[in-house]
Design a protein around this nucleic acid. Structure first.
Length: 724
DNA sequence: GAATGCGAAGGCAGG
DNA sequence: CTTCGCATTC
């Protein structure tokens, strides 16, 4: 390749490669063909991806148009784009950088006809999908008690993630499966009729589009000469095949991932995708990035120990050239409140040392845990920001508003019709709606069409007819009158004409007030919304897609210097000098649901690994002996993950009393009703908490932390302990 | 047809 | 502990 060398020689590649280590450099400068980069946490993964793109464009002279880069989150996509543009020092508009969902959506918008969708198709989020499934179940006369919508949702999404349509389900004699298959089919029909697609459908539909449409496939394969994928360990089966559709012709598939950070098995991710990548793609070059630039040696050592308990890994051990750093701190709290206070006091001390608040993250397994910590932060007057949870575009009032906008864009959107036809109330009751649904179902048309038809044929009672006509006219009027308006004015107009904002203004209470504020915020959001005109669809459609695909930020403004609160899942890819990993308790983390299946437990362990490796300088672990969850008090035992870290790396912090670090029970309980963290009463020592036990039956010994006399080992057979 | 109040059910992670 | 559906009442 004489010519190639000439090109390379003619460009000064020094700045591009200067700050890379040998492994990173090897990945960035690799030739064509499949390449797997096993990138450990903090090993410069994003750097490799962005440098690779810069290399392809800047050195190999590839057009940005020829690059397809896929990520999982919008944030990652945005960051990648920014960094690439900074490196190349000019905008790269022709490059496709986005999430699987975002890019699929783009494809489907561009080729809606070929994909068998109406032009104005709308996107269902998880909640919309849930509601629709409930409707479908009702339509099939299935009792919700017997047929939980959640189960049907799980069934449908699970199959879609595997690429299976209702007709392609494996034959089964199981009546439950058969019934669920019918639900799946009915759901699909409803979606098709209403012109809506759920998240999984975006991917599946885009994949099928390329698979079945040869000219289109050839076109895109010809255009995208290089396909790059971030977080490859989180791809599910359909995403894997989706990628193959693009890369099959040339095999230039550059995937970056870490099997130890695969944490989305519950939504269909297949670790196997990364485990078998080199077998699926002969000639794959595998490059390991094991040097970590983020955390201290202590943190890495502990994290390596934890993850070593998993089986079937590709194998990787992080190391650092940096310092050992501070020991990991462990706080055993009495209660979740105690834990929260501890966290807040450490944060205050940290901030007092001159660190910005934003250098701190509090991580937890489930979003419900944030409340207690938030309350303590508020009390201490420490600004904070919560990621995840209920996000802007998921709020009730915002979804109401969006439903109006969606109907303006697409009349046949049944879920939106159902949502707002009587919101605010305008005299459309159950009866009328039932008639509408019945009629729509039998005629296989949308609610909108069915309403028009029933009105035209005068088949409704006068009152209902007036109300219904009022609604249809309202939507038509909104759509027509606001044509040519700028987006924000469209939204504003809709809010006042529909009576929605008035409706919430009339309501009293703090909640209603914030709803009105949110609706006003929606107008601002619309005003600030920018989209690529080149996408070829109008601003309203783009805005609606944005709302569906990017649920928006949580509370608080991003500007202020504030403590970051988030679930472990949303922490992936981020890093902070000081990290709190809270709620390390059996049943919570690892989560209860994961204890049955070994595979799930390993995923929880990976989640722990992800959490630990977020910390740059200081990692603080904590667990509570008593935790209030869902209104009930639970006595808990420390997470088994704590027992998987070497003792000498951990320093315990304890205000009073001592709690020995204990691992989860390896065998059953020593006596009836006795469990780690459970409360017991002793005749002379009083009440205490079970910390440890050994053996079973009357010879079993238990360690109890008594409130009055501290920790003692007792033999169950003699101590006559009473479980409480 | 709409507002109010009660009881039951759900309860993990996210695009 | 919430939220949501449902029934009762206005």
């Amino acid at each position: 390749m004489q010519a190639g060398n000439d090109i390379i020689a003619s460009v000064d590649v020094t700045p591009l490669l200067a700050d890379l280590n040998p492994a990173q450099r090897e990945a960035v400068t690799a030739g064509p063909g499949p390449l797997l980069v096993l990138a450990g946490a903090g090993s410069g993964k994003t750097r490799v991806l962005t440098h690779r793109v810069a290399w392809l464009v800047g050195v190999e002279g590839l057009s940005p148009h020829a690059i397809l880069a896929v990520t999982f989150t919008n944030k990652a996509a945005a960051e990648m784009r920014t960094r690439i543009e900074r490196m190349l020092q000019h905008p790269v508009s022709g490059m496709w950088i986005g999430t699987f969902h975002g890019l699929s959506h783009r494809l489907l918008r561009a080729h809606w006809k070929e994909a068998g969708l109406p032009q104005g198709f709308q996107i269902l989020d998880a909640e919309d999908q849930h509601r629709l499934i409930r409707r479908v179940l009702k339509g099939l006369n299935l009792d919700e008690g017997y047929w939980p919508p959640k189960q049907a949702q799980w069934f449908i999404n699970g199959h879609k993630e595997e690429g299976r349509r209702p007709q392609q389900l494996p034959p089964t004699a199981d009546p439950t499966q058969q019934q669920l298959a019918r639900v799946y089919q009915a759901y699909e029909d409803t979606c098709q009729r209403s012109g809506v697609v759920d998240f999984a459908e975006l991917l599946l539909r885009a994949y099928e589009l390329l698979r079945d449409n040869e000219p289109l496939r050839t076109h895109y394969q010809g255009r995208f000469r290089h396909v790059l994928v971030d977080e490859f360990q989180d791809t599910n089966r359909i995403q894997y095949r989706w990628l193959e559709q693009f890369a099959a012709a040339h095999g230039n598939l550059f995937v970056v991932g870490d099997d130890d950070q695969s944490i989305y098995g519950w939504r269909g991710a297949r670790v196997e995708n990364i485990l078998r990548f080199d077998r699926d793609h002969p000639g794959t070059r595998t490059i390991r990035l094991e040097q970590n630039y983020r955390s201290t040696g202590t943190i890495l050592k502990a994290a390596n120990h934890v993850i070593a308990h998993n089986s079937g890994r590709l194998g990787k051990e992080l190391w650092t050239a940096g310092a050992e750093g501070e020991p990991i701190l462990l706080y055993s709290a009495y209660t979740d409140l105690d834990e929260a206070r501890f966290v807040v006091s450490r944060i205050e001390a940290w901030v007092a040392q001159g660190h910005p608040r934003a250098s701190t993250a509090v991580l937890y397994r489930s979003n419900a845990q944030s409340r207690v910590i938030e309350e303590q932060l508020i009390q201490a007057g420490v600004p904070y920001r919560v990621y995840g949870g209920l996000r802007f575009f998921e709020r009730q009032e915002i979804k109401d508003a969006l439903a109006y906008l969606r109907l303006m864009a697409s009349r046949h959107d049944d879920p939106s019709f159902e949502r707002v036809c009587n919101q605010p109330t305008r005299g459309l009751g159950t009866k009328t709606l039932d008639t509408l649904r019945e009629h729509a179902k039998s005629g296989n048309v949308s609610l909108w069409e069915s309403a028009q038809k029933l009105l035209a044929e005068n088949q409704l009672p006068a009152r209902a007819a007036t109300a219904l006509k009022g609604f249809l006219d309202l939507i038509e009027r909104l759509a027509n009158e606001t044509k040519g308006f700028v987006l924000a004015e469209q939204v504003e107009h809709m809010l006042s004409l529909s009576g929605l904002i008035e409706h919430y203004k009339k309501e009293k209470g703090e909640k209603a007030e914030s709803r009105v504020e949110n609706l006003e915020e929606l107008i601002s959001a619309a005003r600030g919304f920018e989209h690529d005109e080149a996408d070829g669809f109008d601003p309203l459609a783009a805005f609606l897609a944005h709302a569906a695909l990017e649920a928006g930020e949580g509370e608080a403004d991003a500007w202020e210097d504030c403590v970051q609160l988030m679930s472990l899942h949303s922490a992936k890819g981020l890093e902070f000098p000081l990290v709190f990993l809270t709620g390390l308790e059996e049943g919570l983390f690892p989560h209860q649901h994961s204890l049955q299946e070994p595979g799930r437990l390993e995923e929880e362990r990976r989640l722990c690994y992800v959490g630990m490796t977020r910390a740059r300088e200081q990692l603080v672990l904590s667990h509570a002996e008593v935790r209030r969850l869902h209104g009930q008090e639970h006595y808990t035992s420390p997470s088994r993950f704590l027992g998987e870290m070497p003792d000498d790396l951990i320093q315990e912090v304890r205000a009073a009393g001592t709690v020995t670090r204990s691992t989860a029970p390896e065998s059953g309980a020593p006596a009836a009703g006795m469990r780690l963290g459970g409360r017991v009463r002793h005749e002379t020592f009083g009440e205490g908490v079970v910390l440890h036990y050994e053996g079973q039956g009357p010879q079993a010994r238990v360690q109890v932390n008594f409130e009055s006399v501290g920790t003692k080992w007792l033999v169950v057979g003699y101590a006559r302990l009473q479980t409480l």
